[in-house]
Nucleic acid binder design. Structure first.
Lengths: 153, 153
DNA sequence: CACAATTAGTTGCGTTCGCAACTATTTCGA
DNA sequence: TCGAAATAGTTGCGAACGCAACTAATTGTG
């Protein structure tokens, strides 16, 4: 199976999968970002830190960087912002004093509890535009590509 | 069909489709970028301008911005860089002297002819990790999402 | 035990980005 | 036809980014 006509000599960017994938990722991100940006004042790195700490209480910046695949400086700055807003707090680890355990504060837990259902609902709305067949096929393709590129968890 | 277990209360970022899509787009972009970056010294905006001008000779910056969905300042700066390197040239449009028609120079056409087959081959290699079924399903899902988000051409 | 190598996290710096403002030109409407 | 609104493209500026260098703490090795 070919993505485009085999005798096309030039490159039509509109049909180029890497370009389309980037455009789609930006579109999906924008489709969600007004929830955590406008309503909660979070940017993408901050949102990812909140999402990670929300399920992995007491994790380290290192762990967040590894599991979100963000650069450690991006994580460091996102954590600093969230701490200024009293959404998370950090305590030096007793076992290794280089590390700092990150936890949601009471306000952070409240925001997380409000935010996550809205975000999951948005994801659901988005994926509802696909038939069962399309969703299954899309997820299968995404998994194969992730595996090929070594992006899996 | 559900993407994750319905009784999962927290949000696992690793299974969150918008996050995975962004990660995949970055991974695919990196998989390609060493061709146009290391071997031809182009960054992503420059590559997109080359790809557009390569098929749409004499188009304007406006047109490039619309068809690549890049911000007009990003297009403007990419064009300026490519002009400095004598890969493209601009002439003021006779019909509308606000516009400038963009064309590949001889050197630009040579680069385009070298570059495009390599990039298309890389795309082919990437998509070869999918079965026919998976490719069909993945493209169908991508089209449906693009349509839902109004990203189509 | 001491010292080199490694690791967690932060910060300085140059780059890239998009918004807003700007110039130049064209189009629209009274 | 003249002035206001719109459009093509550029530039100033502040925000965000990643690399490299840094501090502090730990681990490994002789």
């Amino acid at each position: 199976m070919s993505v485009r006509a085999p005798n096309e000599l030039g490159l039509e960017l509109a049909g180029f999968v890497p370009y389309r994938l980037n455009r789609l990722a930006v579109g999906v991100s924008n489709h969600l970002s007004d929830i955590y940006r406008e309503r909660f004042g979070l940017d993408v790195p901050e949102w990812r830190v909140m999402a990670t700490v929300g399920t992995q209480h007491g994790c380290t910046a290192q762990h967040i960087a590894a599991s979100t695949r963000m650069h450690k400086t991006r994580v460091s700055r996102a954590i600093a912002h969230l701490e200024e807003r009293d959404l998370i707090e950090r305590v030096s680890s007793a076992a290794d004093r280089r590390e700092r355990e990150v936890r949601l504060t009471k306000a952070g837990r409240r925001m997380y509890a409000d935010l996550v259902p809205l975000v999951l609902e948005r994801e659901r709305q988005l994926l509802a535009c696909l038939t069962k067949e399309q969703l299954r096929g899309f997820l299968a393709g995404m998994e194969a590509l992730e595996s090929f590129l070594g992006l899996q968890d």
